[in-house]
Write a protein that binds this DNA or RNA. Structure first.
Length: 581
RNA sequence: CGGGACGUGGCGCAGCUUGGCAGCGCGCCUGCUUUGGGAGCAGGAGGUCGCGGGUUCGAAUCCCGCCGUCCCGACCA
């Protein structure tokens, strides 16, 4: 055994605690009862994280090393596109959020703090702060573009933290922000970030799909989510089985449906349908006519950006997609528009009453329809497009389903459950033109507004997603680039065999000297315990030194991911692990 | 915020129905024996049974209130 307190050089992560006997690490045979997701169970069992409170986690050294690895990959790829790292305050004067209006729009997730200096917000994101910073320091087009990023803890008062690191109240986030002199510049910068993101996720060993997304509360136009398929995903996206079309289900369109059904001479008939405000109740009422939900026309009343009423039409067995700006009617809206009867809306005569009608193309392919009669407790059957009602605008507003046609090529769509691991936005001038604002003087001496983008990756979430997709029944199996150590060295039976201890100690020292990041399991534990823990921790390469191998002058090596084993002559171990064989 | 479940040593759980010395497995400490895929024996440490109140001679157990945690839903840069 090496002398206690012996000094070793710091490794690449600035850590010299590499012996299991001196590391703050406890593995658990059983997962904590509050861990549901497999990633959460394994990360907790292997000692990568500990829960302090709901959605708040500590990272013991092993987990911290994985975070540092992820950060290093992110730093390298950001450096490649010329982005500079900076650090921003976590504590923001509440006035900053009042000025941008997001104290209202993000009200529910803001964590507020009062202190002697006044009222503060724990930053959930930093667009306002960084925009103000760049505006102060940049005044000329000559200084643009500017690309900056931060890696730091952010806070959101999540309604429901879940699945371990997937959704937490305090989380480590990489956020980047870009400032350009023109829309074209912004688009070029966006492309650079998009490519950097692909490299980052590739290096993390993740199967990912960039999907088109809605922009949500952040605002802006073009944006992509980087999705990793997973059963714990909170999102779903549509993905074409033939071309590269992929979009979040909230944004996914579908192609034109099959040819319209043959003409029918069924007349429009009004029926008394007491106590049947929903699709299910109406279907039951007309059960003897063979009506199904697919034969009903679902009519959703909404209000658009300008406050004007819109009715969306989709088949009754479909969900309607409310695109940006549309808001479903509340009770006050129904009072303001008495011609739209809650629970009994039909498309007939709406245009005449100044209500815009937007229909999914599926509506043209079906019918005649059963639908609301615009009269309390009455529905109609036989409603036919062109005869009984018309449509102002045809648009894909039904939520896509498995096997729906792709909007680009018509091939069937897959629906995939996934985790959003990263998100890139072209913000345009949303923040730079408003408060706090960011402007510069162009080559003609005229003041212009900067064109901006923002680009986020949840670092803790990334760790969970990698664990989710890199494990087996024995434990974790980290991809090489993100593993906490490169090599897990196990001494077997060192207590009773001094030569094993000597050889293992010497090998540990030699590996450290050669710059190999090695975790040395020098505990006085049985071989079974060490093997089981090694498989649980998931360090890519395991090297075992034991009496059996020693007798033949070899160490045994196992590749954690594939399970493949081989033997290496002791004198060749360092060379083979450093790639110099 | 709505629905459901659960809070008992570091971790996993039993005990609660029917009130009567707080238990089991893992982990931890000491000793001996073991030793190539989560060893055995012996001894030991560690718990205000989530918190507060009530009922009772007596409450982990029954009643009331609160807090916390997880799951489903709503929400979600």
């Amino acid at each position: 055994m090496g002398a206690a307190g012996q000094e070793y050089p710091d490794d690449a992560l600035g850590c010299r605690v590499m012996r299991a006997t001196t590391m703050l690490l406890q593995t658990l045979r059983e997962a904590p009862g509050d861990a549901e997701a497999i990633s959460h169970q394994l990360l907790a069992r292997a000692g990568f994280l500990r829960r302090l409170a709901s959605g708040i986690y500590s990272y013991p050294p092993l987990g911290f090393r994985v975070l540092r690895r992820l950060e290093e990959i992110i730093r390298e790829e950001h450096a490649r596109i010329g982005a500079e790292e900076l650090l921003l305050p976590a504590l923001h004067p509440r006035e900053v959020w009042r000025a941008s209006g997001r104290d209202v729009t993000m009200d529910e997730v803001l964590m507020r703090v009062s202190a002697r200096g006044g009222d503060f917000v724990l930053g959930p994101t930093h667009e306002e702060v960084v925009t103000a910073l760049v505006d102060e320091q940049v005044s000329s087009y000559r200084e643009l573009p500017r690309l900056v990023y931060q890696i730091q803890t952010k806070f959101r008062d999540e309604a429901r933290p879940r699945f371990g690191l997937l959704r937490t109240r305090e989380f480590i986030m990489k956020d980047a922000y870009s400032f350009d002199a023109s829309a074209d510049g912004m688009r070029a910068t966006y492309r650079a970030f998009y490519d950097a993101y692909c490299r980052i996720f590739d290096r993390c060993g993740l199967p990912y799909t960039p999907v088109e997304a809605l922009s949500g509360a952040i605002g802006g136009d073009v944006n992509h989510e980087f999705m990793v398929p997973s059963p714990i995903g909170e999102d779903r996206f549509a993905s074409c089985t033939a071309c590269d079309y992929a979009a979040n289900l909230e944004a996914a369109e579908t192609g034109a449906p099959a040819a319209p059904a043959g003409a029918s001479d069924e007349g429009l008939v009004e029926h008394h349908t007491p106590d049947a405000p929903g699709i299910d109740a109406v279907v039951e009422h007309f059960a003897d006519r063979g009506l199904t939900a697919a034969g009903m026309l679902k009519c959703i009343a909404a209000v658009d950006d300008d406050g004007a009423p819109v009715v969306l039409l989709v088949p009754g067995d479909r969900e309607a997609r409310l695109e940006g700006g549309l808001r479903v009617f509340d009770d006050a809206d129904f009072e303001a528009h008495p011609s739209l009867v809650k629970g009994y809306i039909g498309p007939m005569g709406l245009r005449e009453r100044g209500v815009r009608v937007v229909a999914d193309p599926l509506v043209a392919a079906g019918g005649p329809w059963a639908t609301g009669a615009n009269r309390f407790e009455h529905h109609v059957t036989g409603a036919t497009l062109g005869r009984d009602f018309d449509v102002d605008e045809w648009r894909s507003v039904a939520v896509a389903r498995e096997a729906d046609p792709c909007p680009r090529c018509g091939a069937p769509l897959d629906i995939v459950q996934a985790v959003e691991a990263g998100h890139t936005f072209q913000l345009g001038t949303v923040y730079s033109a408003g408060a706090p604002g960011a402007t510069f003087v162009d080559e003609d001496g005229v003041e212009q507004v900067m064109w901006t983008g923002s680009y986020g990756i949840g670092v803790g979430r990334l760790m969970a997603v990698i664990a989710e997709s890199h494990h087996d029944e024995h434990g974790l199996a980290w991809p090489a680039e993100v593993a906490p150590f490169a090599v897990h060295l196990l001494s077997l039976g060192a207590q009773r065999n001094p030569e094993v201890a000597e050889r293992a100690d010497a090998l540990h020292d030699a590996l450290v000297a050669a710059g190999v990041e090695v975790l040395y399991d020098d505990r006085d534990a049985s071989p079974g315990v060490k093997f089981a823990d090694a498989d649980l921790l998931g360090i890519p390469t395991q090297v075992a030194i034991g009496g059996k191998g020693l007798a033949r002058g070899v160490a045994e090596r196992k590749d954690r991911a594939s399970g493949e084993r081989d033997e290496i002559p002791l004198e060749d171990v360092v060379a083979s692990l450093t790639g110099r064989s």
